[in-house]
Structure formats: structure tokens, C-alpha cells
């Protein structure tokens, strides 16, 4: 019981200090943008002309008060979804986002049933 109390206190503390932290992170955006003229690099990793320009534009957009998603939408409208390293959740990409969790769930069920079947037997 003592452990549980300590545990809850610690967890509560830890979450409260974490949730207060919500700022727009420029570098995170850079890491999600593909440098189109490079080979498999994000603009964060690249120093090409294109990457430099895009970094300036991202900075401007942030200063204009655009949110992360608005920036991604603006850029994917111009360059296509190819520019985003994290695919948007939409009809086309639904399976990409959904299938891993489906497999996780299904696998969990299979393991559960195999184990339970044998518990009954013994």
C-alpha cells in the first residue's frame, strides 16, 4: 500500500511538470520536412540552397503565428505530401497509421487466448 501511495504522488508530480510545456519547436518542424534536392535528408540535416530558404520561410510562418499543422498544409499544397516525413492521417494513409496498432491488438489477443486456453486445461 505504501508503495502505491508513493507511486501515485510521483506520477502526479511528474505529469504536472510535463504538461505545462507546450511551445512550437522550430527544429522539430525542420526534422519533419524533406529536403527535396537531397537524398533522404530532412532540411534540418541539409545545407542546400533549398533547405536554407525553407528554414527562413518556416521561421517567417512561425512569426506570423501559424501553427505547426498550418505550416505543413501550406507546404504540402505547394510541394505535395512528399515533403512531409510524417504522413498526414487521411484516407490514403489510414492503413499506414492504423495497421501497426491493429497488429499490436491482434497479437495481444492471440497471445492472450493461447495462454488462457492452457490455463483452463491445467
Amino acid at each position: 500500500m505504501k508503495f502505491k501511495i508513493i507511486l501515485t504522488i510521483l506520477l502526479v508530480n511528474f505529469y504536472s511538470c510535463v504538461l505545462s510545456d507546450e511551445i512550437i519547436n522550430e527544429n522539430k518542424i525542420h526534422k519533419n520536412l524533406r529536403c527535396l534536392v537531397c537524398q533522404g535528408q530532412s532540411i534540418s540535416d541539409s545545407n542546400s540552397d533549398f533547405a536554407i530558404t525553407l528554414k527562413i520561410v518556416v521561421k517567417d510562418l512561425i512569426e506570423q503565428g501559424k501553427t505547426e499543422d498550418e505550416i505543413y498544409n501550406f507546404l504540402s499544397e505547394k510541394y505535395g505530401d512528399w515533403i512531409l516525413y510524417k504522413p498526414k492521417l487521411n484516407v490514403v494513409n489510414f492503413l499506414l497509421w492504423f495497421l501497426p496498432y491493429f497488429v499490436l491488438l491482434l497479437g495481444g489477443l492471440i497471445v492472450f487466448f493461447i495462454v488462457r486456453k492452457n490455463v483452463k486445461k491445467t
Partner: peptide, 13 residues
């Protein structure tokens, strides 16, 4: 000058 406008036209090189 800075290439910023070109981004709005989907230019990459």
C-alpha cells in the same frame, strides 16, 4: 532576394 517567394510557387531549384 532571399528565395522566400519561390516557396509559394513550389520551386526547389
Amino acid at each position: 532576394d532571399q528565395g522566400k517567394q519561390s516557396i509559394g510557387f513550389g520551386i526547389y531549384g
